[in-house]
Write a protein that binds this DNA or RNA. Structure first.
Lengths: 274, 274
DNA sequence: AGGCGGCCACAACATAGGTTAATCGGCCGA
DNA sequence: TCGGCCGATTAACCTATGTTGTGGCCGCCT
């Protein structure tokens, strides 16, 4: 793990992009966020950022690369709970727990920022709108896991696989990682299998079917989605669960501090005072 | 739905019991919590407290009875995401989303409290320790869903079923709903099937196996767990994911407000449970 | 260059779990 | 009291997915 200076503090980081799709945030908030992303580590592929049973440390922001959040059974069976993509947060509520009930492992070279969990409290106090945006990001993660539960419980292998591909497409779009319907999927079939609750052989069969039907193409790690509509329909994909809609108006009342009398609007370009 | 006056405002509600297992809270905090639970509704069995696609309204606290959180596919297949037990919160972060991606339906007569979501912001500002405890409860829910994902993806039918029974036993214990290893399981086999991603027939077979092996007994809605250890071992149950351990010390730094000088210590007279 | 390990691919076979269908008992409303 | 309905139970049969095993490709090390 290499620690490196932040090179693009005031550029648009993936997290910033993601949060911006939800809430218009002020420059001041952008600066605070940039500060959270100041301490940066570079991590090699196939490295654990966190291990099941281990004590939690810092909160982390994924800036670049892919990782997986996964849980293992004592006998080695493994389930990938979710993919960690640029702009995702790792262990946002880690202070609340004594130790981690899952592992996080990098798939590619990764760039992560870390900050001490106390910052979260500070955030809620001083930048409630930003905190709300982060809370949204966290709640959305839960929604994604719940949707994957629906997949594993009630969708067939073909449906699950199609659904996952569309989900990744949508999530990656938000952070500008999709061009013309294709993106890099730095994932072995074993990992896909562990994410979808299938055997590696069956994932292979299923991908073949999707390729044969012309819905997707695979060249190495690049996947091209030829017909999103149809793929989404195969996977019974309904993007409601991604909660991509902008923040509802009522958010202001709930999260902005009553002790900040600045009249800031939740959906405007206004900003609360520090 | 009948609205009724709160009858036991200052008694120990299930939520209070649950939070107390995590954090020792002050009388002031108890009173604030009681205030959140002041507006109470009674709801009949098989009633939706929330419907997929519907706009979110209030935050709710389950005080009595059971409900399920579930998601449905357009063709009717259904997955139960989680059981909502007394002391659980429904839609804690509901302000953040425009509309619900799941439904919540009662299984028994239910007593729920409702409060407007703005209270959550107030909570974070004025009662940070209580807010931390609620955040813990929410984060734990996510952990439970992730563990169920592991079940559906990688555990066999027998393992899943055993695991769920032990999980319910543990969760119900915290709110004093278990006596001598037996509790009321107000659930049809169809619901169990939908929770475990199995067919109704196969759940039946599986329960039979568990009964035949003497691990559990079923009489109507009462289930008796004869040998928790062994049942846990069948289900590869590791309670780590329930995060039942008392709040870590570092919590105080993160969540307590810097502008609050109430002298309450985050870890009170706590000690980790054996 | 040769060998090795990781990953993909596919065929042949095995099985956990799904489906269909029939029976039974309990509860409730007419 | 008599249906009628809902849920549990079980048997017989079926299929989606798992398992085992082989071969091929490619990159990497020595």
């Amino acid at each position: 793990m290499t620690r490196a200076p932040a090179s693009r503090a005031l550029e648009s980081t993936p997290l910033w992009l993601k949060l911006s799709s939800y809430l218009v945030l002020s420059d001041e908030e952008k600066m605070y966020l940039a500060d959270l992303e100041r301490t940066i580590d570079r991590v090699s592929p196939r490295t654990d950022l966190l291990q099941q049973g281990e004590r939690y440390r810092d909160v982390r922001i994924m800036r670049e690369g892919w990782a997986i959040r996964h849980k293992a059974l004592p006998d080695g069976r493994r389930q990938v709970v979710n993919f960690v993509l640029p702009g995702d947060i790792i262990g946002m509520y880690c202070t609340l727990f004594e130790s981690a009930d899952h592992s996080v492992t990098t798939l590619t070279p990764v760039e992560v920022a870390s900050f001490p969990p106390e910052k979260i409290g500070e955030l809620f106090r001083s930048f409630p709108r930003l905190a709300a945006a982060l809370a949204w990001s966290g709640a959305r993660e839960e929604a994604i896991v719940a949707e994957r539960l629906l997949s594993l419980g009630r969708r067939t292998a073909l449906e699950r696989t199609a659904h996952l591909i569309v989900e990744l497409l949508r999530r990656l779009s938000v952070v500008n990682m999709v061009t013309d319907g294709h993106f890099v999927l730095p994932v072995t079939q074993e990992i896909l299998a562990d994410a979808l609750g299938l055997s590696i052989v069956h994932i292979n069969r299923t991908l073949r079917r999707l390729r044969d039907s012309g819905l997707i193409e695979l060249n190495g790690q690049r996947i091209t989605v030829n017909d999103v509509r149809q793929l989404a329909s195969v996977g019974q994909f309904d993007e409601l669960y991604l909660h991509l809609i902008r923040a509802p108006r009522r958010l202001e009342r709930a999260f902005s501090g009553a002790h900040h009398h600045n009249g800031a609007r939740m959906d405007g370009e206004n900003r609360p005072k520090a």
